[in-house]
């Protein structure tokens, strides 16, 4: 096909960006991941599968990411419905600002906020004790439930925004028609709202899954002592153990395995990635 000069002018920065900032570093990492002490080797990849701590950490990370994604979805659906269909237009803008407000500060600050709230000598414990609900302060940090809550909190916006945009395009009369034809609330969710929102659900879920899987701070700070996250292992390989080869291999395994999980998820729910753009 013949391309005009303008086409190349516009496409060149994109190609440069892709090649210089995405493709080349990844190629470098890929090569690194196949290097041993002195020669080419597959050991870095083999280590992942033969050393239970590595693949168990990955499985744990992936499972928690899936759980977090599902929880985020379940929480975000009614929120998005309220914002798009029930709230008055003025309130709607306000609600969106409220949703985005936490993202005006860095993730680190947000997490420290949670820690101040939940720690043993924290705000929540102070109120629980002064209300006489507990005698002893309760440690609410450093467990998996808190960590998942933190992850859900951090991910909420990335699920709500795509859902709001698809729900916006849902004609109210479809919901009323379903109701008129005898559908209960649950049935309307199942047969009308969720099928309509599928593209938003899929893209939101992919974004949230990837963000959670790649998160480092939240599991580390809120999860505490039991929360080895796969990203932390990559970090450790690079920084603590100086083993860049192993770290690079882990990085690629994360890329490949998480892509595989998403592919599987799309397959199981009968989605195709191409449909997302529509």
């Amino acid at each position: 096909m013949k391309r005009s000069g303008m086409f190349w002018i516009f496409i060149t920065p994109v190609l440069l960006w892709l090649v210089l900032l995405i493709f080349l570093p990844h190629l470098d990492l890929l090569l690194l991941s196949f290097r041993g002490d002195a020669s080419w080797t597959l050991d870095n990849y083999r280590n992942f599968f033969t050393e239970p701590i590595y693949w168990l950490t990955f499985v744990r990370t992936a499972l928690y990411s899936i759980i977090t994604t599902l929880l985020t979805l379940i929480l975000a659906l009614p929120v998005a419905l309220y914002v798009t269909k029930i709230a008055k237009p003025g309130l709607r803008g306000f609600l969106m600002v409220l949703l985005m407000l936490p993202f005006w500060v860095s993730e680190l600050v947000r997490i420290y906020g949670w820690m101040i709230l939940l720690r043993e000598s924290g705000v929540l414990n102070y109120f629980l004790q002064s209300l006489g609900l507990t005698n002893q302060p309760v440690e609410m940090l450093y467990n998996d439930a808190t960590m998942i809550m933190g992850l859900v909190y951090t991910s909420m916006l990335f699920m709500v925004i795509p859902l709001v945009s698809v729900m916006d395009s849902l004609d109210n009369s479809l919901i009323e028609a379903a109701c008129d034809l005898g559908a209960s609330k649950i049935c309307i969710w199942r047969t009308i709202i969720i099928p309509h929102c599928k593209p938003g659900i899929v893209s939101g879920s992919i974004v949230v899954f990837m963000l959670v899987l790649g998160n480092y701070l939240t599991p580390n700070l809120m999860g505490g002592k039991n929360s080895l996250w796969f990203t932390e292992q990559i970090y450790n390989q690079f920084i603590a153990s100086f083993n860049w080869n192993q770290g690079a291999a882990f990085g690629f395994l994360l890329l490949v395995l998480s892509s595989a999980i998403i592919w599987l998820g799309l397959k199981l729910t009968g989605q195709r990635l191409g449909e997302l753009s529509s």
Binding site: D171, S173, L174, E176, A177, A178, D180, L181, T191, I192
Partner: peptide, 10 residues
């Protein structure tokens, strides 16, 4: 049952 203005077919 109601037939909607824009029909509201699913």
């Amino acid at each position: 049952n109601l037939v909607f203005q824009h029909l509201a077919l699913f």
